[in-house]
Design a binder for these strands. Structure first.
Lengths: 248, 248
DNA sequence: CGGTATTTTGATTTAGCTCAACAGACGTGG
DNA sequence: CCACGTCTGTTGAGCTAAATCAAAATACCG
């Protein structure tokens, strides 16, 4: 019935793009918690970061690996997951450019508590934990900004716990779509398109359900005219209806 | 069979105790993130806090109330919960003396994202959010300590999410008991006694299950000789076996 | 065009919820 | 100190949401 076509997402490839180091470093000024820094201060900070390019699906670091770096996403999307022994992954967060991840502690005996994998090709800046800590010590405003972000993440995480323990899978998925929409939504002919490759498995790992159940619910949502979806992409065509589905 | 007796917990009442303001403020020096301050600095900080006493079961603040204060628990136990419309509460954290709670943001338009209720009688210090923020700005070391605590809480919260989505209720409860044991455990004739009044409902709200299911599992654990438990108290008599139960 | 990864759909099973009734523990007031 | 009322915990029975198992269908990739 529907015309066969490729994903409507922006091409996640940035081959050849390979932003120059200068460009990548320049991006630091866009990072929320460095906004408060003067041009001079920013300059000094920039020198301490180094830049790397990753292809889609690359593992940036692994859970339980010794934690040495703090990273800042400059381009692309990254997902944070936590594994279990039986291969039942849990997807903890999806990151946009400007967000930091990795570790914050600089004690030296820390390990990463999750695994970071690129969801698209990506450019990432990194800095040693000790150096980052020095920056925070010397710039209380930056430290407070990082604290605010961390506190926000804690609240989101706790809200997620609340939903996991009190809502049906259907409502959980509706809520997740709404959250993703505010973070990754972009106007398109299909409605608010989530600018992010998203498989049923990813969605299931976020909602704490099986890929099959996620698929069934997404099919239902599509039938109800709430969303348009294809292979690894989703668009919300009727946000109002979705909001109603998510209600408790 | 078993002799009828009262809870083996320390008397949670502190009537008459009502620690003097001096005593309560003195406790600030015990708070992890103020450790780094000099006596002088601590003096200035102390003046900005005010002390209050609460009885068991008192609500310290309510979810969605305008957030104005940051609190530090000095004496007693406090639980943080998040409500749902249908009265199905979620228990997010249990606090020991020395821990902070409330809000961190000082934007003025913030509300509390959870409800704080005393689990025993309690002494609590509080400080205006703006004032606390000033302290953090002036003492980067304190700010970093608060950041570390917040980051730790985020990690615990995410680990909890992992368990909720991958483990059976039985294993979740076993894990929760282990965690509570390291935080509230105290040697006693019953084994490691959790120094904290804890009902089946509390446990259920932590594990994301029903009070009935929590009860069934606790009964089983007791039969297996893993724990001793009574009305609103629990002791772990066989930690090794409990650890085995919690394994994934 | 063939191969692989992803998604869909159906059938069966089950962990845990809900409802319901009871029993034991606490504490309070006489 | 005892009797009573109220919380808290226990136990049983049936029900349901969602997991699991199993194929088939579809989309994308080179």
């Amino acid at each position: 019935m529907s015309k066969r076509r490729s994903t409507p997402l922006k091409n996640p490839e940035i081959k050849g793009h390979h932003c120059t180091t200068d460009v990548r470093l320049g991006k630091l000024s866009m990072v929320p918690f460095f906004r408060a820094l003067s041009r001079q201060e920013l300059q000094k900070v920039e020198e301490k970061f180094s830049a790397n390019h990753f292809s889609r699906g690359d593992v940036i670091y692994l859970q339980n690996e010794r934690a040495t770096l703090l990273r800042v996403l400059v381009h692309g999307k990254v997902k944070l997951i936590r594994h279990t022994l039986e291969g039942k992954d849990v997807l903890l967060d999806m990151l946009n450019p400007g967000e930091f991840f990795g570790s914050l502690r600089a004690l030296g005996d820390e390990v990463y508590t999750d695994t970071a994998i690129t969801q698209t090709d990506a450019c990432i800046l990194s800095i040693g934990l000790g150096e980052f800590r020095s920056i925070l010590e010397e710039n209380p405003v930056v430290a407070l900004a990082v604290l605010d972000i961390t506190a926000d993440r804690l609240h989101s995480s706790r809200e997620h716990i609340r939903r996991l323990t009190t809502l049906s899978v259907e409502k959980r998925i509706a809520n997740i779509l709404i959250t993703l929409c505010t973070k990754f939504g972009e106007d398109s002919k299909y409605g608010m398109l989530l600018q992010l490759p998203l498989s049923r498995k990813d969605l299931a790992d976020m909602a704490g359900t099986s890929a099959e159940t996620a698929s069934r619910i997404m099919s239902q949502f599509q039938q109800d005219g709430i969303i348009k979806t294809g292979r690894r992409w989703v668009a919300v065509s009727n946000p109002a209806l979705l909001k109603k589905m998510a209600e408790e």
